[in-house]
Amino acid sequence: MSLRMTEDMSAFFARIDQSTIKGVSFLEIDKYYACLMIGLRAAQIAPDPKYRASFLAAGAKFPDAYSDHDTYLLGLLVEAEIRRRQLDPDNRDLIEAETVRLLDPQSPLGLSDQGVDLMNKYAAKGFELLREKMGPPRAIETFLVTYAEIFWRPAGLGSSQPA
């Protein structure tokens, strides 16, 4: 079980320029992450997405570009689940059980199977929300600008308020 994009997500980003900017290129994980962040912020998941094959090799860790931030990604998943499931943040047993459910320090991504599944569903939902706000990007530069605008204007993205 690994990270997977939906068919639509992959097609949406398909026309983006593959060229590198000063040695940094726009990766498959970047596309996934862009969607994931929107889904996590909204604390919404797509119930039954149609996935493509994973863009990571079986048993792979987060790619190098994200290896410094992987803890954040796990944390954001836990945080989003707490909001989505409306768990009482003061109930330490509940919060602890939630982390146990989602995280698995032994696995390559640090996520349990259920955690990976949910992360994919957040990304899938995030894509749907993203698509409402922009057309298929053609260049990284313009994508980065447009994507930032979406985050300045949180309204309309279904961001639920902290519990």
Partner: peptide, 11 residues
């Protein structure tokens, strides 16, 4: 763009 991409990658 490079700077923005790197900042984008860090939640």
């Amino acid at each position: 763009a490079r700077e923005a991409l790197l900042a984008f990658r860090n939640p």
